[in-house]
Design a binder for these strands. Sequence first.
DNA 1: TAGTAATCTAATCAATA
DNA 2: TATTGATTAGATTACTA
Length: 213
Amino acid sequence: MGTAEAPRFLPFAFPDGAAGELAAEHGGGSLSCPRTERGGWAGGPRKRKRTTFSRGQLSQLERVFAALPYPDIGTRERLAELTQLPEAKIQVWFQNRRARRIKTSPAAEPPACPRATLAGSKQPRLGVSPQHCKQQARVSPLAGGSSGFLGGEDALSPAPRWPVQEEEEEEEGAAVWTALSSCWDAFPGPPTSLGSISDLIYSAALVANLGEL
DNA sequence: TAGTAATCTAATCAATA
DNA sequence: TATTGATTAGATTACTA
C-alpha cells in the first residue's frame, strides 16, 4: 500500500493527528509490527487509542454525510480542516457510518451511488467508484425509491433511488457536485467560517437534490 | 498487461459513556 | 452493556510503466 495522504492501517495507537505522520515515518504499514489475527498485538497488550469526537465535529460529519455519503479526497480534506481532525479519521468515520447505516436499515437505505464525475476535474478518484456500485449490487440489489442520491436532512431520510439509470445518475451527481463545487470555489483558501461552510455544503446539496438550483 | 494506488464493504476487535 | 472508533481482509477500478 503506502499512501501519500492517508495510511490505511497504523502500526500503533497514536493520539489524534499523529497517526498519519508517524505511520509515514515508519513506512506507512504494519508489516514491521506483528499482530495477531484480528487486531490483537503479538508483542503484548497495547491499548488502542479511541478518538472521542466532539459534538461539533460529529455534527459537521453528520451533516456532510447526509449530503455526501461518499466524499472524495478533496471533500474529506476540507472536512478535516473544518473539524480539525486528520483526514484518515474522517475516512474511517465515513466508512463506519456507511457500514452501520446499511446494517441498521438495509432495505430502506441503499447506498448512495452517484458515480460522481466532476466536470473538468482531473482527480483520479472521486470517492464513489463503480466498483462500489457493483459490490452493492451484490449485497443489496435494490431498485426503486425516491429521489436522488442525497440522504436529505439525515441518514434516515427517504431512501435514495439506487441503482439509477446511468443518465439520471450522472445528472444528479453532476448537479450536486456542481453545487458543492461552487461552494468550495467560494472559499479558495482555508475556511474562515467553519460553520457557514458546512451550512453551504448542506444547503447546496439539499438545493441540488430538490432541483431548486 | 502487470503493478500500484486508492477506495470500497464486511467482519471484527476493543475503548468508552 | 451498547455504541462506535479502529483495524484487517479481500475485492474492484483507474492510472502508469
